[in-house]
Amino acid sequence: MEKLSSASALIEKCRPERPVRGLRPHAAGRAARWFLENFPGDVAYAYKANSSVFLIGALYGAGIRHFDVASLPEIEDAATIPDAHLHFMHPVKSRHAIRRAYDMGVRSFSLDSEDELRKIMECTGNAKDLILWVRLAVSAINSRIPLEHKFGIYGQPAADLLVKARQVALELGVTFHVGSQTGTPDAYSTALGDVHRLIVQSGVMIDRLDIGGGFPSRYPDSDPAPLQDFMKVIIAGIEQLPVKDNIKLACEPGRALVAEAESLIVRVDARRGNNLYINDGSYGMLFDAAHLGFIFPTKLLGRDVDPSEPLVPFELWGPTCDSIDHMKGPFLLPASIAEGDYFEIGNMGAYARAIAGRFNGYGEYDEVILLDPPMLSMYGADATELPAARSR
């Protein structure tokens, strides 16, 4: 794959017909190193967030060896990674997927019901080498995408399930998820309090605790607390647990590891007032912008703009014939932007690639590796700020 200094260098070299994914593997590697250095346990990358071989390679090169996988295709893909430890953390799995995963060496499974526990035991032949994680439902506090309504168990049923799982598990864990893009660390403090009460209520000693994902990334409309604040709260909460000295920890970052590691370079095919019609949209990599209201950083490419020219808010429309192919934004770009211009949409490494489809025949992308920093960053003293979105 071609390497270029920036998205601007791409437009200087050619004017691509298709939208372009700009990969920044170095950003994924930096994020992974931060988590490995600051989290006191296993860092299991949430494979669903982005399975690009270039980003997986960067995470692996940084030291990631654990992977949170949620489907059989993800397991079959991730099983090719040398020395990978796979954790099948979807709480509802088909019998075929459980059998196939176990045959491929997976021993780590999550569950949130007695039916799922029974299914796992039956499909693994009552195996004696299982790591079983009981998924606890916890409150979503200041998260962009709450998850507690679909999965998880709580109260006395959770305590009962923990007792039953303890009887058959080689190692027993508790896991939870505070919701995607959680802006403040108090969600983890509350969840760890729930874990504490569950352990006391059940009278069961656990071997492992997985605090899930939810760690945030930066966007123009979201300036979350520093990741170090999250770690302080998490470590303090774990210190209050009755099993703190004999427990192995894990987390499942997805967005926080790869959001900064990919951007999208698009062309303006038409302008109508403050509406820009571009060559990718909600059926492609902009699903989150269309359906969840995410606002991503934007930067005009390929030509100079007068520094005094104002940045104005635009709405974006994708290339399909569907009227829901609409990203309200606002996305800030120079007032003079016109048909034929290109711009970069940054910090799109989380979920955008995974969700993109082929509706109306669109969904084909070119790819390049970019060597410059991401537009926004959560990491370190060299974390970047949003640059002027005016020009190259």
Rank of each mutant, 00 (worst) to 15 (best):
N50L: 09
C14R: 13
D112T: 11
Y102I: 08
G183I: 00
L333S: 13
A225S: 14
E239V: 00
S52Y: 03
H96I: 12
R255A: 15
P220W: 02
N275P: 01
I278D: 12
Y365N: 14
A388N: 13
P373R: 03
M1L: 14
F109P: 05
K244N: 10
N50T: 04
E37W: 00
G63W: 01
G41Y: 02
R303W: 00
M327S: 13
I278L: 08
S143P: 07
L4M: 11
Y60I: 09
D306Q: 09
S52I: 04
P310M: 08
G29V: 04
L10H: 04
A28K: 03
D229M: 10
G173N: 05
Q201T: 08
L192G: 07
L111Q: 04
I238G: 14
D221S: 13
G173R: 03
V20Q: 07
E116H: 08
T182C: 13
L332R: 12
F359A: 15
E116K: 04
S94L: 11
A27T: 12
A159H: 06
D229T: 06
Y277G: 09
H90V: 10
G318A: 06
N347E: 11
P40C: 05
E367N: 06
T384D: 04
M104D: 13
A250H: 01
L257D: 09
D77A: 15
I153T: 09
I278R: 05
L72Y: 07
L376A: 12
Q240F: 00
T184H: 11
N279L: 00
P253W: 02
R99W: 00
S377I: 08
G155Y: 02
E76V: 06
G203D: 14
L172I: 13
I145H: 07
F287C: 09
S51K: 02
D269P: 00
M375S: 13
A256F: 00
V174M: 08
N38S: 12
A335H: 05
L301N: 07
A381S: 15
M89Q: 07
A70S: 14
G281I: 06
L286H: 01
E37M: 02
L10V: 12
Q228L: 12
T384F: 01
A28P: 04
E385D: 15
R303E: 07
V92W: 04
V195T: 05
G179D: 13
R358A: 13
H96S: 14
I206C: 10
E367S: 14
Y362S: 09
R303P: 04
M1K: 02
L227H: 03
D194F: 00
D210E: 13
D322V: 03
P334I: 09
A140P: 07
I199C: 13
I199F: 08
L136F: 03
